[in-house]
Computed example of a mutant assay.
Amino acid sequence: MKHLLPALGAAALFATATVAGAAEPMSLMLNWTPTADHSPIYYAKSKGWYSEAGIDLSIEAGKGSAVSAQRVGSGGADLGISDLATSMQAKGKGANLTAVMVIYANSPQGFYWLKSSGIKGPKDFAGKKIGNPPGDAARIMWPAFAKKVGLDPAAVNFVNISPPAKVAALKSKSVDIISDFYNEHDLKAKEFGADLGFQPWREIGVNPYGNSIIVNTAYLQSHKDQVAKFTSITQRAYEACVKDFNPCLQALTAAVSGLSPDNQRDQWERIKTLMRDETTTKVALGAFDGARVKSDYDLVATLIGIDKGFDPSTMFTNDFLDKKVKMPAK
């Protein structure tokens, strides 16, 4: 699949105005409120790339990967962004969904604590309070983390807090530990300095695919051309933002109020690390590796459980990605 606009050719470009005027609605539910990792989508929308392809894209803020997976899987949203392992669990419960592009090729999950609390590492989490939202992928995947580090999954208490309240909750010591994505690392490092303890999941061997673009499978089957266009455009947008983040930052902050540009720049630098692995650099930006997907499936099935098993190869497709678009190696 070529870059969208060049591939459309002269005839399609001639028809752009007509297509845009008759753009078909498409709904996208994010995993959380919009931040830097969603900026390429806002950039592509601001440039008119979706509307030029006949897509009238609406974007809805999310409340966790579990919620977005359930919404997409039930047909309440056409597409969404969700942690892949969480999407696997949803699929095992009957959610009708397929992943078409990975954003985080590495797990963004991490736990944070204050060293002054006496916690030295995950083995000290027993009896402690972990603060995060109920729909957070870290809470759903906690049993896998706990078993990997030798903890009883029931050894901690989860406290419901909203994403913006995490740092304040840790600072006030109303919780002992918080979970958060690695792209938010700099805020906590600046706030707590040398007192900050941090354990990324990927460094202990729990590195499932993270945020991915998922599509309701029935919608995919009936709107294959639209999904192909959306995926190609979105892949191209992420490539553009990797090359130059400033236009993407401008598009994000113009669409979403209250964001700190400096914080979003810091986040994007971390995000690029999470986007990069051997498959995204050698096959295509956003591409899944089938062996890794199967490994993730086995991890979820063994350590957490999947209600109704399925063939992990049905979890994803790379068919809509342009193989010429690759993540830079560094």
Rank of each mutant, 00 (worst) to 15 (best):
Y104A: 10
T86F: 09
D56T: 03
E60D: 08
K45H: 07
N106I: 09
A66P: 01
V67Q: 11
Q70C: 03
S58C: 03
G75L: 03
A69F: 00
G73R: 00
L79H: 12
Q109A: 12
S82R: 09
A85F: 10
P108N: 10
A85Y: 07
A99N: 05
D78N: 15
A90E: 02
S87H: 09
K91N: 05
N96D: 15
G48F: 07
A69E: 01
I103D: 04
A53T: 09
S51R: 13
K91R: 15
Y43G: 04
V72L: 05
S68E: 06
E60N: 08
I81W: 03
I59G: 06
S51I: 15
Q70E: 11
S65V: 12
A95T: 00
S65C: 08
V72A: 06
S39C: 12
N96G: 03
T86G: 06
S74V: 04
S107R: 02
G54F: 01
S74Y: 03
V72H: 00
M101E: 05
Q109Y: 08
A105D: 11
D78G: 07
A90K: 00
G62A: 07
K45Q: 15
A69S: 15
Q109P: 00
G54N: 04
A77V: 05
R71E: 02
G110N: 12
S46H: 13
P108V: 05
E52F: 07
Q70F: 08
G75P: 05
A77L: 04
E60R: 10
G64Y: 00
I103K: 08
V67D: 13
A69P: 01
T98W: 02
S58Q: 14
G64Q: 03
Q89A: 06
A105N: 13
I103T: 09
S46L: 06
G110V: 02
L79T: 10
R71V: 12
T86S: 14
V100W: 00
I81K: 03
S82T: 13
G62Q: 09
A77R: 13
Q89H: 05
D56N: 15
P40Q: 10
I81Q: 02
G75W: 02
G62T: 04
A66S: 14
M101P: 02
D78W: 11
I59M: 10
G92T: 05
N106F: 08
S58P: 06
